[in-house]
Every structure is written in C-alpha cells, then in structure tokens.
Measured scan of single mutants.
Amino acid sequence: MQIFVKTLTGKTITLEVEPSDTIENVKAKIQDKEGIPPDQQRLIFAGKQLEDGRTLSDYNIQKESTLHLVLR
C-alpha cells in the first residue's frame, strides 16, 4: 500500500509499505529515499509519536495515510 510522509519543509514523500511493516522499517525506507538517518527521524500520526517496534497496523495506519516527519 502507499502512504505519504510530509516533511517540515512541506515536501511529501510517497512510500510503498505493508501494514505489517514496523515503524523502524518505514524509517529505513525514508533513509533510502531521503538520506536521513533513522535516529534523527520522528514520525507523527494523528498527533502521536510512533514507536520503532510497533507496526503500521498497530496504529491503524491505512493506505494513503499521511505521516508527519520531524527531525531531531
């Protein structure tokens, strides 16, 4: 499924993921596309910060959901 990741600069990254993918996994995909190390990434969905060990389905993230990427 496709999800979108919006950065603070207003750029939107499109990722191909599975509901069973972990947040860690998603961060690795963002690193592949954008070169941002996962340890600098914070992903936010519905106002919650997403934890590395959880999966997209844990957070009920469905196709075409938009996550927000904050760098630390």
Rank of each mutant, 00 (worst) to 15 (best):
E24D: 06
R54Y: 14
D39K: 14
T12A: 07
H68S: 11
D21K: 08
I3A: 01
Q62T: 12
K11Q: 12
V70E: 08
H68W: 11
M1C: 02
E16M: 12
L56E: 00
P19L: 09
D21C: 02
T7V: 13
G10L: 14
L71G: 05
A46E: 15
G35I: 04
T66V: 15
T12D: 08
L56H: 00
I61V: 10
T55W: 13
G53R: 08
K33Q: 05
I30C: 02
L8C: 02
V70N: 08
E64Q: 04
S20L: 05
K6Y: 11
F4K: 08
R42W: 08
R42C: 03
A28M: 05
I36L: 06
P19N: 04
T7A: 07
K48A: 07
K29Q: 12
L56R: 00
K27N: 02
T14S: 10
Q2K: 13
I3M: 09
K63I: 11
D58F: 13
N60G: 06
S20Q: 08
E18P: 05
D39V: 15
I44H: 12
E51A: 13
L43M: 05
I44W: 11
N25L: 10
Q41S: 12
K63P: 12
I3K: 00
S65H: 09
N25G: 15
E24N: 11
T14C: 02
V17Q: 12
T12E: 07
T7W: 15
Y59A: 15
G47R: 11
D58M: 08
S57D: 14
T66M: 14
K48R: 14
L69I: 04
L67S: 01
Q49R: 13
G53K: 12
V26H: 00
S65P: 02
K11T: 07
I3Y: 01
G35P: 07
E18N: 07
Q2R: 04
F45D: 02
I30V: 12
K33L: 09
L8T: 06
I3R: 00
H68C: 03
E18H: 11
I13L: 05
T55K: 07
G53Y: 14
T7I: 14
G10I: 14
K27G: 01
V70P: 01
V70C: 03
R72E: 14
T12C: 02
T14I: 15
Q40P: 03
T22W: 04
G47T: 12
N25M: 14
S57A: 04
R54V: 11
T22E: 13
I30S: 01
V5M: 03
D52F: 08
P37L: 11
I23K: 01
Q2G: 15
I30Q: 00
D32W: 12
R42A: 09
Q49M: 05
R72P: 09
P19H: 10
S20C: 02
F4I: 06
T22R: 12
H68D: 13
F4W: 05
Q40G: 09
V70K: 10
F4V: 10
Q40N: 13
I36H: 13
G35M: 15
A28Q: 13
K29V: 03
Q49H: 06
G53Q: 09
T66W: 13
Q62S: 08
G10M: 04
L8S: 10
Q31H: 08
Q49D: 11
Q41F: 13
Q2E: 05
T55S: 14
V70F: 12
I44Y: 10
L69Y: 02
N25C: 02
K48Q: 13
Q2S: 09
T14V: 12
D21I: 09
P19C: 02
R42T: 06
I36D: 03
D39A: 06
E24F: 08
I13T: 15
D39F: 14
L71T: 05
G47K: 05
E51V: 06
I44G: 13
K6G: 11
G35F: 08
T22G: 03
V5R: 00
R54D: 04
R42N: 12
Q62W: 07
D58A: 04
T9F: 08
T12Y: 05
A46K: 09
Q2P: 04
Q2V: 07
F45T: 02
V70I: 08
R72N: 07
Q31F: 11
N60H: 10
P19W: 06
V26S: 01
A28I: 11
I36Q: 05
Y59C: 02
K6Q: 14
K48Y: 12
S20R: 08
K11Y: 12
G47A: 04
D39G: 10
M1Y: 11
E34Q: 09
S20D: 11
E16F: 11
T66D: 10
I44C: 03
K11R: 07
Q31G: 05
K11D: 07
Q40T: 05
I30W: 01
I61E: 01
R54S: 09
Q41G: 06
Q31T: 06
Q31N: 07
F4C: 02
E51F: 14
P38G: 06
F4G: 06
E64S: 11
G10P: 05
Q40C: 02
L56C: 02
T14G: 06
V17F: 08
D58G: 05
G53L: 06
P19D: 08
T22H: 07
I44P: 00
E51M: 06
Q49C: 03
I3L: 08
A46P: 01
K6V: 13
E16G: 14
K63V: 08
K33W: 06
L8H: 13
E24L: 08
V5T: 02
G47S: 14
D52T: 04
L69D: 00
K11C: 03
L8P: 12
A46R: 09
N60Q: 05
Q40S: 11
D21H: 13
L43H: 01
L8A: 15
V17R: 00
F45Q: 05
V5W: 01
L69C: 02
S65R: 03
D39S: 08
L56F: 03
K48F: 07
S65L: 08
L56W: 01
K63N: 06
P37V: 15
G53M: 09
L43V: 03
I61N: 00
G35N: 15
K48V: 10
Q62D: 13
Q31P: 02
T9H: 09
I13Y: 11
S20M: 15
Q2A: 14
D39R: 09
E24P: 07
P38M: 12
K27A: 02
D21V: 04
D32T: 15
L71C: 03
Q41W: 04
I30H: 00
S65M: 14
Q40K: 04
T9Y: 10
T14N: 09
E18T: 06
V26T: 06
S65G: 10
E24Y: 14
I23T: 14
P19G: 07
T22M: 04
F4P: 01
V5K: 00
T9M: 10
T55C: 02
I36P: 04
G10H: 05
T9V: 07
L15F: 10
L43S: 00
L71S: 15
L8V: 15
K27D: 00
E51Y: 06
L43Q: 00
L56D: 00
R42E: 08
I30G: 01
G35D: 07
M1D: 12
E34H: 07
I61Q: 01
L8W: 13
P38A: 09
E18L: 05
L67D: 01
R42K: 13
S20W: 13
I61T: 02
E16Y: 08
K63D: 10
I13Q: 03
T22L: 04
T9D: 15
T12H: 08
K29N: 09
S65C: 02
D21A: 05
P19V: 14
L69Q: 03
L69N: 01
K33R: 08
Y59L: 08
A46M: 14
V17I: 04
A28E: 11
N60I: 11
S65E: 12
H68I: 04
